[in-house]
């Protein structure tokens, strides 16, 4: 029997190693997806078709707040993984919950930004610029939504089963995903918002 347990454990360990690499590769493919959307935005951002340009609609202090919130959530996610690795269930739980709250606030801010643009008649079908803007930022928001859902499932697992080994591995993948979304946001913040408000 111990023979079996050893074989299954070894299998699980190599599987986790594969999953870590596979998930990283998935993130690389997602980067290419975002790159395509960035390229489209870069090509179309001048095509305002009589509508507003970036500098007319961007509220930079608001976006800075969004950026700092997301950055902080990336940090708290890191803390959650450290605490979980230490076996400190309570702390891990708290930091993960903090990440969720920060991520959720970010998402709400993004939705409110979108909402106010649409109410002002500057929805995604207004011009090519706005189409590409909404799609690029919205795709990021969609990823954030998936991440939040994942955090919820994770929180529920921690609550129900404690820090199981397999869940720690899943948490490390979730953390990777969350950091990646932060990296994408740096470029949205820089290319869409900062550069957009320059010209």
């Amino acid at each position: 029997m111990s023979d079996l347990i050893r074989v299954v454990d070894a299998e699980q360990a190599t599987r986790n190693e594969r999953k870590a690499l596979g998930f990283w590769i998935y993130i690389m493919t997602d980067c290419v997806l975002f790159a395509t959307l960035f390229a489209t935005y870069a090509v179309l951002h001048g095509n305002v078709f009589g509508g507003p340009a970036g500098k007319d609609i961007f509220n930079l202090p608001f976006v800075l707040a969004e950026t700092l919130i997301l950055l902080t959530s990336s940090f708290t996610m890191g803390l959650a993984t450290i605490m979980a690795a230490k076996g400190n269930r309570h702390q891990a739980y708290t930091w993960l919950a903090a990440t969720f709250i920060l991520g959720f606030s970010f998402l709400m801010m993004e939705i409110s930004e979108f909402g106010s643009l649409i109410i002002d008649g500057n929805g995604p079908s207004r011009s090519a610029f706005l189409s590409s803007f909404f799609t690029l930022v919205g795709t990021h928001g969609l990823h954030i939504t998936v991440g939040l859902l994942w955090i919820l499932v994770m929180l529920w697992r921690f609550y129900k089963h404690g820090l199981k080994k397999q869940d720690l591995h899943r948490l490390s993948l979730l953390a990777l995903f969350w950091h990646f979304l932060d990296v994408i946001w740096i470029f949205i913040f820089t290319i869409v918002y900062l550069m957009g408000s320059l010209s």
Binding site: L79, I82, F189, T190, S197
Partner: peptide, 27 residues
Amino acid sequence: SNRKLISYVTGFVSSVGLTLVAYYVVV
């Protein structure tokens, strides 16, 4: 885990710094 903590704090502080610098040079 302490080394990891230091790594995260370093990353966080410098990221915030870089974000603020980018923001203020533009504003």
